[in-house]
Design a binder for these strands. Structure first.
Length: 357
DNA sequence: GCCACCGGTGGC
DNA sequence: GCCACCGGTGGC
């Protein structure tokens, strides 16, 4: 039994994807912070699912395969303490780019939700069930110390007094989301500052961007900019250490989510090096944004989602929290069909990955 | 003109 | 291959 390691999940706004982060023993060994990100896209087939929340799903009656073939999440059996950055219904949220927060009711309580990320969950290190977190702030608080202080259901009683490991998980991995591994132990932003994670579209040159919003609303995108800003705004720099800022981003499980640096640019007909790009040529199953648009989270009147012990490898998602709409890409330059082609099954993904260099 | 988003690239 | 940084650009 290897030591438990953090695992994070992020569900992307309007992308019907969950970016899930977990820490595997391997990555912990290989990486300074020992994190990876697993992204699971729409129509993700359980047959080919990752092992990200295998333990969580093991709480159901279904049987699991033990193929941890992917090097990046091979130590899936140690996936614990997962955090999920999960986006609530954003159908009415056109202010995706804004920094404003919304309030919604979660089990008769009002919680502030970041429009850029949404709701957050964490995986219990005891029962491996996933629990929603009431806020991004709580997520960041837990993430900051997730390694030395693994999350347990009991800790959720802070905002859900009745919760226990005996309750159904709030969320399970299914095929409708994108998974990525977030980084553990990222310092909470200094008081008055906000850390923003923006997920890019499929096939981009990188997976995500991190921004910090200063108390005065200035958006900063690198430590250089922050350092410069602090020098120019000493009133906001007091007690603010650069070490409090981290621009580390989650990493997608779907390895081809991010275009390789050596990848060739696809020609207009979608061909790369004479072959069709995955978005058109692979047998992936895609979810169009229009289809996703009708999927909305139901964060209001929240109760712990009751998930039947069905086979998630084939059954559609029944958890209302798993319903989300996609985050539109502002730049029309990126074909939406390409972007939403992230909705591949895991098997297809691996097949595709196998063709990568 | 602003800015969110994306790509490119140097450095490691 | 990954990260950090920053320039380009299209939508508004």
């Amino acid at each position: 039994m290897q030591p438990s390691l953090p695992k994070f999940t992020i569900k992307l706004k309007r992308e019907q994807k969950v970016v899930e982060a977990m820490t595997s023993a391997k990555t912990h060994r290989d990486c300074k912070i020992g994190e990876q990100i697993n992204i699971i896209a729409p129509n993700f087939s359980g047959e080919q699912e990752s092992n990200l929340d295998r333990r969580a799903q093991d709480t159901s009656t279904e049987e699991k395969k033990d193929d941890c073939s992917d090097d990046d999440h091979q130590d899936c059996n140690n996936a614990q303490n997962q955090l999920v950055v999960y986006n609530p219904a954003d159908a009415d949220s056109d202010d995706i780019g804004s920094q404003s927060s919304r309030t919604y009711s979660l089990q008769n309580q009002a919680y502030k939700i970041s429009p850029s990320v949404g709701a957050f969950t964490v995986q219990c290190s005891i029962c491996f069930k996933w629990r929603f977190l009431p806020s991004k702030e709580k997520y960041e608080e837990i993430r900051e110390h997730i390694t030395e202080q693994p999350f347990v259901c009991e800790a959720a009683r802070e905002w859900r007094p009745e919760i226990s490991c005996n309750d159904e998980p709030d969320i399970r991995q299914d095929g409708s989301r994108l998974w990525a591994i977030d980084r553990p132990n990222i310092a909470q932003p200094p008081r008055g500052w906000e850390r923003l994670l923006r997920i890019r579209g499929f096939g981009g040159s990188r997976f995500a961007d991190v921004y910090y919003i200063s108390p005065s609303g200035k958006k900063l995108r690198s430590t250089v900019e922050i350092q410069r800003y602090l020098l120019q705004h000493p009133d906001e720099a007091e007690g603010v250490a650069l070490s409090r800022f981290s621009f580390q981003t989650p990493k997608p499980l779907q390895k081809n989510f991010v275009k390789k640096r050596t990848d060739h640019v696809a020609s207009p007909d979608g061909r790369v090096n004479g072959t069709l790009e995955s978005s058109q040529g692979s047998p992936m199953s895609w979810t169009r944004p229009e289809a996703n648009a009708e999927l909305q989270l139901e964060m209001v009147n929240y109760t712990a989602p009751v998930v039947e012990p069905t086979d998630h490898r084939t059954a559609p998602c029944q958890d209302p929290f798993l319903k989300a709409i996609d985050r539109p890409t502002k730049r029309s330059k990126q074909p939406s069909g390409h972007m939403y082609n992230a909705g591949c099954t895991y098997g297809n993904l691996q097949k595709y990955e196998g063709s990568r260099t």
